[in-house]
Simulated scan of single mutants.
Amino acid sequence: MTSLIFGANCSPFIAQFVKNKNAQRYESSMPAAASAIYRSHYMDDYIDSLPNEEAAIQLIDNIMFIHKQGGFQMRNWTSNSKKILASLPKDLLGEAAVKFNTGELYEGERTLGLIWHPNDDTLRFDVSFKRIPETIINGTQKPTKREMLRVIMSIFDVYGILAPFTINGKIMLQEIWKSKISWDDYITETVFQKWSKWIYLLKSLKNDYGYE
């Protein structure tokens, strides 16, 4: 094979193996870049944080060099530093980076399921639940077991930042599972009381902390 197809069961493994195999050749000459490729890449995405702009510029340059030796071109770069963005070719910048450079307001960059706003370097979560009935989200309608699961699992929090909040939803789901109701049965009254409080806190997250 001279190219990797997407969709096959083995594709994620092969992509990661080739990426790491290529980086392995530069462990001695560029150890920091090789380590970043091993530890800070998620499929074809790369996310990292550095103590200063000079270190970031050097690391990015080395990472791009290593990937280029394997025939890979890193694109759609963005940063919360205009100095770092200025060090990169304009054709490799992402849309968010271009808007950040011009001071244009935008909705933020989606990064690993989170929404990152480079202007103030903050992370936000999408808790709009556009595909879920409003009556379920505002707590006026008792959800079914299926709808409850859909809401709880819609909060994508890969780093566990919201764990103190989301764990309560998962505990409720565990409780309703033990009640042995069917997927399309409404949750029990006891759990609904807890659910209503949880939904109220969910709305306070959105209002108080600026989550989307």
Rank of each mutant, 00 (worst) to 15 (best):
I132M: 02
R131S: 11
I132H: 04
S182D: 15
L93S: 01
K83L: 09
S154W: 03
I137P: 02
Y186M: 11
G160V: 00
G160T: 02
K178T: 02
F125T: 01
W77K: 09
T144P: 04
V98E: 09
I152E: 05
L149I: 12
T122K: 13
S182R: 13
I152Q: 00
I152V: 15
L114E: 13
E175I: 08
S196Q: 15
E147V: 04
T78Q: 03
G108K: 12
D121N: 15
K194G: 15
N76T: 05
E175Q: 11
D91H: 14
I136M: 04
S87R: 12
L162H: 07
L123G: 06
V191W: 01
L114V: 14
S182V: 06
I181D: 03
F125Q: 01
I199W: 11
Q193F: 11
L112C: 02
P143A: 00
G169I: 08
T190M: 01
F156R: 11
Y159M: 11
P133V: 11
K142V: 15
F192Q: 07
K145N: 09
G94A: 08
S79T: 03
P89F: 00
Y159S: 13
E134W: 03
D121I: 03
I152W: 05
L92R: 15
K145T: 13
G113M: 02
V191H: 04
Y159K: 09
K197N: 13
P89E: 05
F156M: 05
F100T: 05
Q141L: 06
E95G: 02
I199E: 12
I155Q: 07
A163N: 15
K99E: 12
T166Y: 08
E109Y: 12
L173G: 04
M74C: 09
P89A: 05
P133W: 10
W198I: 01
P164F: 08
W198E: 01
R110W: 03
G108N: 10
N138M: 06
W198N: 05
S182Y: 14
T111F: 08
P164S: 09
D91R: 10
I187H: 10
W116R: 04
P89L: 00
T166G: 07
P118K: 00
E104I: 03
L93C: 07
E175D: 12
L112S: 07
L201A: 13
N76C: 08
K170W: 04
T78P: 06
Q174C: 07
Q73L: 12
T140W: 00
E109K: 12
S87D: 14
Y159H: 14
D184P: 04
Q141G: 00
P143L: 08
S79I: 05
T122G: 03
S196K: 15
P118W: 06
T166M: 12
T144L: 00
P118V: 02
E134I: 04
W177D: 05
I137M: 03
P143F: 00
I181N: 03
